[in-house]
Amino acid sequence: MLEFLIPNNIVCHAVEAMLFASISCGILGVVIARMNISSIGFTMSHSAFAGAAAGIFLGLNPLLTGILFSVLVATLLGPVSDRTRMSVDTTLGVMFAMSMAVAIFFISYMQYLGRGFSASGLLFGDVMSLYREEIYALAVLSIVTVAFIALFYKEILALMFNVKLAEASGIRTKVVFYGILFIIAVSVALNIDIVGGLLIYVWLVTPAAIAYQFCYSMRNMFIVAPAIAAVISAFGVWAGFEYTLPVGPLIAVLFTVAFALAVILSPKRRITSNKS
């Protein structure tokens, strides 16, 4: 798609993937940050990681099994939180431990069987070996994410403001919340190939956290967060290839630096010296 701008096919694919992932993760990150469920990032990424490890063990497509396992965990999250009357964050902690255990089990067992398996690809991602179909999948995911947010914008807005008030106003909060969890699960599972299971957490949290330092409305946050993600990610890809640095970790560091600068420069922390 961007070949006319970037002649190098590998770099072009990486930038395209980063841009699409920035849209989906940046937008979902706003919802995640606002609803205080940031641990969904590492829980889902480790669910995808566990599913992918199981897929490799069973000789199945790891991307597909990663998605399936994430969706399974996402489907369980809401009902388990409701049933146990625990916060979603606590349930996420339980799911994280389970996912990590499943992943380690399969990796260890494959090593025991002498079937060499390196988890580094899943943990840190690999932007240089993306297939065109994967980029198309990310493009579709971005469109689905934008469409979901647009269709349920007012319900999501109400949920992000206050769940109890949203429920009291007659909104079917569970339907919308479960839908959000489902989209996050699929998004994480598809993006795990690019930035990896560990670093996707940064992508889901940091762009929204940066946007929050400057935005006074949710609408602006939904625009600014993916834009920040796209700019930093594209720069990270360029710098990674230019200076032969690992792209995923480099982007994570760039996000953190940008967040630190945002906190320092945020107008929200200024105290007026005006006496009138």
Binding site: L157, F161, A166, C215, S217, M218, N220, K268
Partner: peptide
């Protein structure tokens, strides 16, 4: 239903107008 207690942090990015409009969301439907 006006609730007994609520707390909104000072940086909550929702204006009074948006919050008042939210009262109509349930009635509007999806």
């Amino acid at each position: 239903y006006v609730l007994q207690s609520f707390y909104f942090d000072p940086f909550t990015p929702f204006t009074v107008e948006q919050v008042v409009m939210m009262g109509r969301y349930g009635r509007m439907g999806f």
